[in-house]
Design a protein around this nucleic acid. Structure first.
Length: 291
DNA sequence: CGGCAGGCGGTTA
DNA sequence: TAACCGCCTGCC
């Protein structure tokens, strides 16, 4: 890693870091692409990043922040080539999925932000989750800076701020609907528990799927395997000749994806969303008839 | 075009 | 098991 003025340049394996894949695969909703750079906020800091053949370029950071924050946030210590190789060799579908989304990385995100963001994600879709989360930050997050075209950039709100609000306050700002009371109570609970999210499913508004997301996207449990409608659909298409129940799917996941389960889930999820039902059927046909 | 079902990256009671 | 907020899509 080296620093040139306000630009950090770090080595990243060329095929293991793709901004679009990282920021649009559903793990975070705070990054957007502008003029060839991806801009985002985490840990109360705003940066811009892009990649260039084997290099990660970061603007708005410095040596200290890179070492203390971004190195870990972008999961740079993990060797994704090794993970993709292992998954590819253990499963023909993962070979295809890791080829399609090979630049995905699992960000190590902040506990409170992840908890609230995925409470919002329940029974919701990506464009609307993005809107809600960013509206929440704009309304209640502390100001970080003004960007080059005059927009105020906000951090994710602190637990104390959200805990002091009413559900109606949140609703007015975000239009997150019936999830708003969950956001307030989760903020209060989070404070009462001293920031402990080791059992996310014990928070109101957090069921099995959201709990898995929190564990996986904070880096707490890399075997966590969130099962949403897309993953459920794909698992039954690829591995079952009948419509499996949730228990059956969970059983299968535990044995089949034991190691690197969370990574497998991300590759599969990203891959499935790019395919039509017909394309999946054709792929299943082809893989089954291979010697 | 505009009104109105139908469907979402689940959870709760 | 249905109801839930609100936005987007497709249909008439």
């Amino acid at each position: 890693m080296e620093q040139i003025n306000d630009l950090i340049v770090a080595d990243v394996p060329e095929n293991d870091f793709d901004c679009r894949q990282i920021f649009t695969c559903g793990q975070t909703f705070r990054w957007k692409e502008e003029n060839g750079w991806w801009t985002g906020v985490a840990h109360g800091r705003k940066i811009k990043i892009r990649t260039e053949t084997g290099k990660l370029l970061i603007k708005g950071s410095d040596n200290g922040d890179f070492d203390n924050v971004w190195h870990d946030y972008f999961d740079l210590p993990t060797d994704y080539s090794k993970i993709k190789k292992y998954l590819s060799e253990s499963d023909p579908f993962l070979a295809l999925a890791t080829a399609a989304g090979g630049g995905i990385r699992l960000l190590k995100q902040e506990p409170f932000e992840t908890l609230i963001t995925f409470i919002i994600s329940a029974n919701n879709n990506i464009p609307r989750i993005t809107k809600c989360v960013n509206a929440l930050c704009d309304a209640f997050g502390e100001e970080i800076c003004i960007d080059e075209i005059g927009r105020t950039v906000h951090a994710f709100p602190k637990p104390e701020r959200l805990a002091a609000l009413s559900a109606d306050d949140i609703s007015e700002a975000t239009h997150a609907g019936y999830r708003c009371p969950y956001i307030v109570t989760a903020a209060r609970e989070f404070i009462d528990r001293g920031g402990d999210i080791s059992k996310p499913e014990t928070y109101m508004g957090v069921g099995p799927k959201v709990a898995s997301c929190v564990k996986l996207f904070t880096g707490q449990d890399m075997d966590a395997f969130p099962v949403d409608v897309w993953v459920k659909r794909l698992i039954s298409e690829l591995y079952f000749d009948h419509e499996p129940g949730l228990a059956e799917i969970n059983d299968f996941i535990k044995t089949h994806f034991a190691l690197y389960g969370g990574y497998a889930q991300q590759y599969l999820f990203y891959w499935r969303r790019s395919l039509t039902d017909d394309a999946v059927r054709a792929i299943v046909e082809e893989v089954r008839h291979k010697p």
